[in-house]
């Protein structure tokens, strides 16, 4: 009874709803621990929304990075139809269910938008004898499994990329999983592993000091012009892998935002518009430039198509390696 009265009262007080407008705090669910790449992404979006007052309701950020991010997706999937749970992730949203027995399906979340693409590079130690990716691959072919690739997590984007490199070139590598890209970066700087495939942001500090150096980047074209980082070389001077003779045109990781399944269409539209505005601010441009990512706003069919293609490519690798969860 009381509930009905309250509902009736709510119906009077709220504006007749053509479009969704949040009336209570919005929770940003971050599928990584504090300080991780996804965490920085979500908190940047939060700070931009706060600064430009893009959402009237307060925004609360919670970290749910357990189980490589599965914790956050399972949590959000449990709030079917809830318009107040915005989940931040990467392509792990649709990859995790394929490699681990996690209790959610990619369809349990509604895609809202992709805001940026993070890049991957092949990095070697600063003192390494390899100056380009060709000699690196030749060396790997000459001695199978001698080259040690470090990376973040297992059966995740890093290892999938290493496996793809192996497939394309016919070389064999040994892959060593670490807890995160930062650890893989330090292991490379210390010369304990031979290479890693870190994102630009994870190795930038070591590159500045000349402790690591990039061989090539998995972008369709080179990075835009920017200030030199080390020894007169900047991001633009790094060749693309395809141009350096490693036939992988593009391998990137989208920075994605999701809602629980079953939300109304106007809710998706509302957040899509907010995120669109976020991606047009100077602060966003600044974040993307500082972390050497590529700003790319994708929603709707474009996002779905990207996702389908990404998934297809990755599933091939997973199938070949036998990593698909039974």
């Amino acid at each position: 009874m009381l509930k009905q009265i309250t509902l009736a009262l709510l119906a009077i007080t709220t504006v007749p709803a053509f479009a969704f407008e949040p009336t209570r705090p919005v929770e940003f669910v971050v599928t990584s621990g504090p300080g991780g790449g996804t965490d920085n992404f979500a908190r940047t979006v939060q700070s931009i929304i706060a600064k430009h007052k893009l959402i009237d309701a307060p925004v609360v950020v919670t970290n749910k990075g357990g189980g490589s991010g599965a914790e956050g997706f399972v949590y959000a999937a449990g709030y079917k139809g809830d318009p107040y749970k915005l989940t931040f992730g990467t392509n792990n949203e649709y990859l995790l269910p394929s490699v681990a027995a996690v209790p959610y399906a990619p369809e349990d979340l509604t895609p809202v938008a992709t805001l940026a693409l993070d890049e991957f590079l092949i990095w070697v130690n600063g003192q390494s004898k390899f100056g380009d990716v060709k000699s690196f691959v030749e060396a790997a072919k000459a001695k199978p499994k001698a080259i040690q690739f470090g990376g973040s997590q297992s059966k995740d984007t890093d290892q999938i990329l290493v496996s793809t490199i192996a497939e394309v070139t016919g070389a064999e590598f040994r892959y060593i999983p670490f807890k995160g890209g930062g650890e893989a970066g330090v292991q490379l700087a210390g010369g304990h592993i031979d290479a890693n495939v870190n994102n630009p942001n994870e190795n930038r500090g070591q590159w500045q000091a000349g402790m690591v150096k990039p061989l090539c980047v998995f972008r369709p074209d080179r990075f835009p012009q920017s200030a030199p980082v080390h020894d007169g070389k900047g991001w633009h001077d790094i060749p693309t892998c395809a141009e350096a003779g490693l036939a992988i045109d593009s391998y990137r990781m989208p920075r994605t935002v999701w809602l629980p399944a079953g939300v109304e269409e106007d809710v998706v539209v509302f957040y899509r518009d907010v995120l669109k505005k976020v991606s047009e601010t100077p602060e966003w441009a600044d974040y993307v430039a500082k972390t050497s990512q590529t700003s790319q706003f994708m929603t709707g069919d474009e996002f779905t198509a990207y996702q389908a293609k990404d998934r297809e490519t990755v599933l091939k690798v997973l199938k070949r390696e036998g990593w698909l969860v039974k």
């Binding site: 009381l2 509930k3 705090p25 929770e27 609360v60």
Partner: peptide, 11 residues
């Protein structure tokens, strides 16, 4: 940091 809430807070 939100705490668990029940129906009464909702009302």
């Amino acid at each position: 940091v939100p705490l668990l809430k029940g129906p009464i807070e909702g009302w």
